[in-house]
Design a protein around this nucleic acid. Sequence first.
RNA 1: GCGCGGUUAGCUCAGCGGUAGAGCGCCUCUCUUACACAGAGGAUGUCACAGGUUCAAAUCCUGUACCGCGCACCA
Length: 905
Amino acid sequence: MLPKVYDPKPVEAKWSEVWQKEKLFVSTTDKNKKPFVVVIPPPNITGALHMGHALNNSLQDSLVRYERMTGKEAYWVPGTDHGGIATQNVMEKMLRAEGKTREDLGRERFLERMWAWYGECGGTILNQLRKLGCALDTDKDNVRFTMDPQRAKAVFEAFRSLWEKGLLYRDERMINWCTRCETALSDIEVEYEEEKSKLWHIHYPLENGSRGLVVATTRPETMLGDTAVAVNPEDPRYKGLIGKTLLLPLAGRPIPVIGDEEVDTTFGTGAVKVTPAHDPLDFEIGRRHKLETRQVIDFNGKMINCPGKYEDKSVQAARKEVLEDLKAGNFLEKEEHYKHSVNKCYRCNQHIEPLVSEQWFVKMKDLAAPAIAAAEKEEVKFYPVSWKKPFIEWLRNIQDWCVSRQIWWGHRIPVWYCLGCDRDALPYIVGTAGEGGTLLPGSRKGSNPILSMDKPEKCPKCGGHNLIQDPDVLDTWFSSALWPFSVFGWPDKTKELEYYYPTSVLVTGYEILYLWVARMVMSGLEHMGGVPFGRVYVHGIVRDKHGKKMSKSLGNVIDPLTMIDKYGTDAMRFTILSQAIGGKDIPFSEEAIVGGRNFVNKIYNVSRFIQMHLPETPAAPAAAPADLELADEWILERYNKTLEEARLSMEDYDIPKAVGALYGFLWDEFCDWYLELAKPRLETADGKDRVLGLLLHVFGGTLKALHPFMPYVTEEIFSSLKPWLGSDKPFLLKEAYPRSGGASGGTAEADMKKIMDIITQIRMVRAQLEISPAKNITALIASADTSGLGLLQKYPGYITRLAKVEKLEIAAGLSKPRRAVTALSGAFNIYIPVEGVVDLNKERARLAGEIEKLAGELAVSEERLKNVNFISHAPREEVEKITLRKADTGSRLSRLKEIIKDLGS
RNA sequence: GCGCGGUUAGCUCAGCGGUAGAGCGCCUCUCUUACACAGAGGAUGUCACAGGUUCAAAUCCUGUACCGCGCACCA
């Protein structure tokens, strides 16, 4: 006998290995089949998978397995992402543990370490995806990596193409600079966080020392780089001061007062200190008024070009000191409490400095236009649709994309400079020319860039050989943006590209909708001439059970691998899939997985039960179940309806609904009702085969239907039942997804409902009157509904079995025995004779309660039917329904009243 | 400031025009030969508030409050 509790571990380990070994997830470009393609959002090689990955990949796996079972050539393209800054940060942390920095190693050796790490971590991630049950072909020859040679080729081609079309350019601009990661970031890589701070009011005196004007600032330390004070030219308070010269406190430099329309007269004092080097708006003002851009904060977040005492201090330290000095010099007039948001790096959460620097940018407006059109025409369709509008809005407001990063890990910018003839290139390279060289951030690069993937033989201009590559790498999202076609070998014209592109659906969390999805859509349209996917399934973020974001610092992180270890993959997948509703965030807790685990155990125990009754040698399965009785017809009807609901839900990408339907069917209907009704028949010689056939049919089908969501337990059970199920397929995935057997139109559901309600009513009375479940009772059922009674007479076994009734009498004319309790079910009166055990006062009180409830219900129905407007406006079916309800309630009420009267004697 | 979501049972959430639902938790009973990771039964809701539309509103509309989340601003 099998153990009572399912042990997922060995089962999952076994199948996960067999699936890979048998190459179950390999796809071929089969022209006879319709492809269904999903490219995996490649996980960064930063370490272990988290709950977000578990959700994202469980969803994809469900879709892919489902589509494969519906007969499509389903291909889920595996791969990992080099993950730029994020991965470099991980490595730097590891180096720090060794007491080293990346500079200690130098670029070349650092990159060697990175590649070694990729070898290690890339494998770990694939392993974890396999553990999750993912239908991914993880053969290493088929797993793509955003930095492998073929993908590098794609990146170069994209770069070249954008460059040649003039969509890629270099410019000196104000960019977001992370002083910790020491690189520029694009606008969407900056996060905003509200912080309590102060607004300091500082007096800038006139040149002659007399009263000047007061500026308000949240960043006093930047005053050292001020090159003007701006006021609104319409502001009567300051009109007269425009053109005058102020003396910048602490620095002692003269700066002009200028007029600029952008200045908001209502904010602060209406006078703005202008620091063109360290504020985006000031940079603009500076450009308009041709002001000097005076950099006082360097790329490490240290003060430079300052009076000696501030030099080389951190921004924070300098702020403190500047404020003290201003106070001492009587320049500080006011401190106001102020809440504003500070910019933080999305990778390291440290402050972002706006700094002026020369960087590579992609011109976005022209690229965005076709993407907007595609979203509007729903060539790219969002699930849920609510993402359509924000997506389009974001594209409409798009700014140029800063794509150069001053880090080492990534696709090196394929641009070279000649140190022989390009004089601009020379002074800015520090360190050894060549691979080890670094470029000072923000410095101007060579003015004659040479585009080439590998080092050019010689300078096309002067023939010189002293060539140096641009030291920057591309934003990691630059390569991710090409993913839906680079995975198929683009720019080469491969048969994969032709067969699989565009892909079918992209599954991703909304947090990378703009960082990634928008850019893929634009890239696809630009480089492939068509959208990369027709649909985007947007899911939420996995949070803790109170809706808080999971984070190490809060200590509320749930590790999917630990959960898998404790409860099994299927349990975790079932739980998370059930909750992935409508793209909303998912509150997740360990307790919830227990529920999933219990369901897995339930499925397993059904199979145990069936297995107990199987004949030694499997008989040929009956082609069509014949000679059915009510419960059989009922379960088939329910089974078909459930399959239909699952199918419709899957077509609408409503996975939780599909999962929920199957769960409810299997547990509530199949187990709690049908199985219990099947039990006695399994003991009879002639009924056994028929009911067993049906059990196998329905349970086998349900296993297939559940397989996309819970691959392991279903595969395991299916494989053990296979001979009896009459399947010749090696794996469940090779089976066709079960479809509803078509229109039933039978009365089984309605009839069964009558019987089920009687059973429930008897059980209720038993529980309420504390009649021991062990005690067999007698029940009499009377009714004026003769056809109803006929039904019951046909299946008395259902009632005796499930309501624990020993002696059951069914007849129209039965009257209530003297000492009996009564239950009503529709048109049926159910009498349960009792001996001394039951307190009749209790019964009287119970009935009185029932009467009260029914009277209330009756009043509601009557009220509605009295309403002429209801009768005239509501649809006929509705009126009929209420009329019937009123009759039914009325009849039950009067029957009960009679009974209680009788009980009184 | 603009936009998007949310507010339903103790908790987490479904439902989104016709008599309030699930899971978990709680209470009672039962180790009945698939499963106590189970079975049977039970309690608990002015469906945030205020107006409106409708014969009928948790469900549609408008407004308010509170909570999230984007985007912008942030001198």
